Simulated scan of single mutants.
Amino acid sequence: MLIVDDDTASRSTVAALLSPLRYRLRFAASGEEALASVEEEIPDLVLMDVMMPGLDGFEVCRRMRALLQEVSIPIVLVTALDARKDIVRGLEAGADDFLPKPVHGAELRARVRNLLKVRAYYQLLATQRDSALATVDVLRQQVLQADRLATLGTFAAGVSHELNNIAQVLRSALESPFAPRDGSAEARADVQSNREALTHVSNHLTELARTILRIARPTGAELQEADLCQTLREVRDMLRLTGRTRHAQVVLVLPQQPCRIRANPVHAQQVFLNLISNAADAVVDAPSPFIEAGVQAGPEGRLEAWVRDNGPGIPSELRTRIFEPFFTTKPVGAGTGLGLPVVKQIVESWGGKIHVQESIGRGTRMVIDLPVAPASASPRASP
């Protein structure tokens, strides 16, 4: 307990009156000394005279409140002043109670005990608050960890999905000749096609590894550009090599000039690998399987890309769910339900949108709206 009074006798009197309570007492003979004492060690209660040379009790009380901020310490002003305006001034300065001089021992001890009980209550609330905040922080970390594990699980399944596509390309390439069996131009073209597909696969694997590293250690990678015309040609060749589209007629509708967007070229491959693979699965039982993929200029510096098939189409009640993770209309074991969610995430990261276009009769048309890369031309599509 801190007793502040410029009069030595008054300090001694208060100390004697409080002696039955056996509190540890500290003393200050001025306002400046009291502030220095509080900075050195925060007391549980302050008993302070008002009329002191230099800083009076009102000013010291105000400065203590500013110094201690949220720390709840009872401050009792002991004064001979009894005018209402002085009481109001003391309360506005931050005092909790007043005691008139001369101080009555029993009243002093009773008020001190009550104020210390209030302080103990505030300390208990502060402790409970700190404990609650610590618990909230622990729970928040647990939620973040659970969310991180869920994200990693989804990501791991997505990587597995992509690696499965790549493995099919590799398997088909390994089953094909690496050197022409004869000197015909067609044989040499097949070998060159295989090599190009393997190059694309190698790039795809490299980018997957880089993506995993970016998740563990994000960096501000420089934006790249992808030509969607070139992307569609590469994806068509990769899927033809795997045999995924051998049962269907695949037609590309491309403009004469490049259609460039701000995107990683391998991510662009990933989008159309998923969309055309889904279309290939959809037309397996169609009488004349047909898949069309293309890109064309849109209004206001936009591009429209699409993948269309003549399969059975997507029921209207399922169109709102096809982009949900792990939702699939394919038989058990035939799909992970991750292709379209990954596609949607990638397209939106480019500043684009993807949706299923309403169609009459059979078939599905997936449409992607994308911004053109700056300074790129706006070509017209031609079959």
Rank of each mutant, 00 (worst) to 15 (best):
A146T: 15
A146W: 04
T135L: 09
Y122G: 02
R129V: 07
S131G: 05
G153L: 02
A132D: 07
A126R: 10
T154G: 07
L139H: 04
L139M: 14
L124Q: 12
Q145K: 09
A126H: 05
L149W: 04
Q141W: 00
L149A: 13
Q123D: 15
Q145I: 10
L139I: 09
H161Q: 10
A134D: 11
Y122F: 10
A150N: 09
H161P: 02
D130I: 03
A120M: 07
A132N: 08
A126N: 05
L139K: 07
A120Q: 14
Q141F: 01
L124I: 08
H161Y: 03
V143Y: 01
T135Y: 03
V143R: 09
L125F: 07
L133C: 04
A156E: 06
V136F: 01
V136L: 08
Q128E: 13
V143P: 03
H161R: 03
R140L: 12
D137E: 14
V159D: 03
T127M: 03
T154L: 10
Q128R: 10
Q142N: 07
D130A: 15
L144I: 12
Q141K: 11
Y121I: 10
S160G: 15
Q145R: 11
T127V: 01
S160R: 13
R148P: 04
S160Q: 12
L163A: 08
Y121M: 08
N164E: 15
Q142L: 14
F155P: 00
D147C: 01
